[in-house]
């Protein structure tokens, strides 16, 4: 691997790792068994991506379990708490659409991340399909599900702007990515009878945000749980 690739592999690897952990938190809590299985499967795909990407940077376990909060480079979007099922679906819709477009562009190029992107883009198509179906079902469902789906989309909107800030070493057309994302997410929300949220897609408070190592409060608690076992029992194995 070339050294220039490290920031890219770390950013994309941390997105996958952190979202994988959040989705794993649904185990035992999902509304129906099929969703329990679906979310765990999506989490597993993401964990596979994370392992490959972080291994390009260094030792995967050290990177996952021994880094401090400020050393993580994931988007603030993926660290947001699961909320209710609708909020998790909103996060999935926003992120899987982004990841599908990002990997699609990387897979079409000839960079070092192209092989992984070509592999992962096919899996992400299923994640996106899952998120879109649920967005339609909840948005165009009962008054209660509609209201919750809209709230989930609104709550996470301010974390979406960060996705389109260029990442060092990720050779994609960011403007095209953002335009494609807006079109795709906008079309799904419209079909789901939902309103595309208004307001800024990032806050002044967010500074450089997750890609610069600045994270939101819930992230500290999340990694404390994720790293607890490894830090308490170094070298523990199953």
């Amino acid at each position: 691997m070339t050294a220039a690739l490290a920031p890219a592999a770390l950013a994309l690897g941390d997105d996958a790792l952190v979202l994988s952990h959040r989705l794993g938190e649904w185990a035992g809590h999902a509304p129906v068994l099929e969703e329990e299985v679906a979310l765990a499967n999506i989490a597993l795909d993401l964990l596979g991506q994370a392992r490959i990407l972080l291994s390009l940077v260094g030792d995967e376990d050290e990177l996952a379990y021994l880094r401090e909060e400020r050393a993580f480079r994931n988007l603030q979007l993926v660290e947001q708490p699961n909320g209710d099922f609708a909020q998790t679906i909103a996060r999935q819709l926003y992120f899987s659409t982004y990841q599908g477009l990002l990997y699609g562009q990387l897979a079409a190029g000839d960079g070092e991340l192209a092989p992984l992107a070509a592999k992962a883009v096919k899996e992400v198509a299923y994640h996106q399909d899952h998120a879109e179906h649920w967005t339609l079902r909840l948005g165009d469902g009962t008054a209660e599900s509609h209201e919750r789906m809209q709230r989930g989309c609104d709550t996470l909107w301010r974390f979406t702007g960060e996705m389109f800030q260029p990442v060092e070493g990720v050779d994609v057309d960011w403007q095209k990515l953002e335009a494609g994302w807006r079109e795709s997410v906008g079309a799904v929300l419209e079909r789901a009878t939902l309103t595309v949220p208004e307001g800024p897609q990032s806050g002044a408070w967010s500074a450089g945000a997750g890609r610069q190592g600045l994270h939101t409060e819930p992230f500290g608690r999340m990694i404390a749980e994720m790293q607890h076992l490894h830090r308490s029992h170094p070298g523990a194995t199953w």
Partner: peptide, 13 residues
Amino acid sequence: LLSRFSSTACKAL
């Protein structure tokens, strides 16, 4: 189709 994800990542139910 019951679910796009089943007992393993490669299967649908």
